[in-house]
Computed example of a mutant assay.
Amino acid sequence: MTTTDLLNVRSLSFAYERRRIVDLWSERFDAGLVWLRGPNGVGKSTRLKLLAGALAPQYGSATLNGKVDLLTDPLAWRREVAWVSAEPPPFEHLSPAELFGFLAGLYPRADRARWELHIEGFGLAPFLRQPLRQLSTGTQHKAALAAALALGTTVLLLDEPLNALDEASLVHWRACMAQAAASPDRLMLVVSHEELGVTPTRELILKP
């Protein structure tokens, strides 16, 4: 196996109300940090949702490490792929601590010590026991990032992760992205309209 086999996307397609948003998308991804760019309406977020298993492709599939298939082994796929949406995190009745505890039961390589490092980096300690619905949008977002970063998945999908981050959190987040860029065996795929502030391993620009 080579690193080019980490994520292989094959002809993924998806349409909303007969409008094809993703049309026969094929791409191979190495490990590292990939910045997925492009204007509004080209299907950046839809691609993340397809790869996360949040949307079912109408055609095509994808494989991880040449073994795990998005369509034929969806449970194994979800255990290897984490996703943070640009929307508020689900399970708003849970606290950040409860959210990680719940997710840790689903992801076999979840690491509590790593989560605690991200809690410190994002300044979340004062909010650990408060329900997410009571927290600001920025704090909810940081709680979702901290949890996802600690799950130990092969692929981490992030939609506008820099949104609503304060300066201290941006410093921590950019350190996380720099670490991802140097990873030999994991992929961080980021959709962002903002400059990342670090050098990605690769930029992938989608066109209308």
Rank of each mutant, 00 (worst) to 15 (best):
R186P: 01
T154W: 09
L170E: 09
E120I: 03
L55A: 04
V34G: 05
E167N: 12
A143L: 02
P208N: 01
M1P: 01
I119N: 03
S136R: 03
T139L: 13
C176G: 01
V191A: 07
R202A: 13
E194F: 07
G105H: 07
L157Q: 05
A104V: 03
L117I: 03
R114S: 09
E98S: 14
A31M: 07
S95C: 15
R112F: 12
K207F: 10
T4S: 04
G32T: 12
T153A: 10
L50T: 06
C176N: 03
R186T: 01
L71M: 15
L162H: 08
F100R: 12
P126V: 01
P90Y: 14
L106N: 01
L187E: 00
R112C: 07
L206M: 15
H118G: 00
A31P: 03
T199G: 11
G197Q: 11
Q58R: 04
R129L: 11
E195D: 03
P96V: 06
R37M: 14
L124G: 00
L204F: 15
A181Q: 12
N40D: 05
A31H: 07
T63I: 11
V22E: 09
F122D: 01
Q58T: 02
E80S: 06
L162I: 01
E17R: 08
G53W: 08
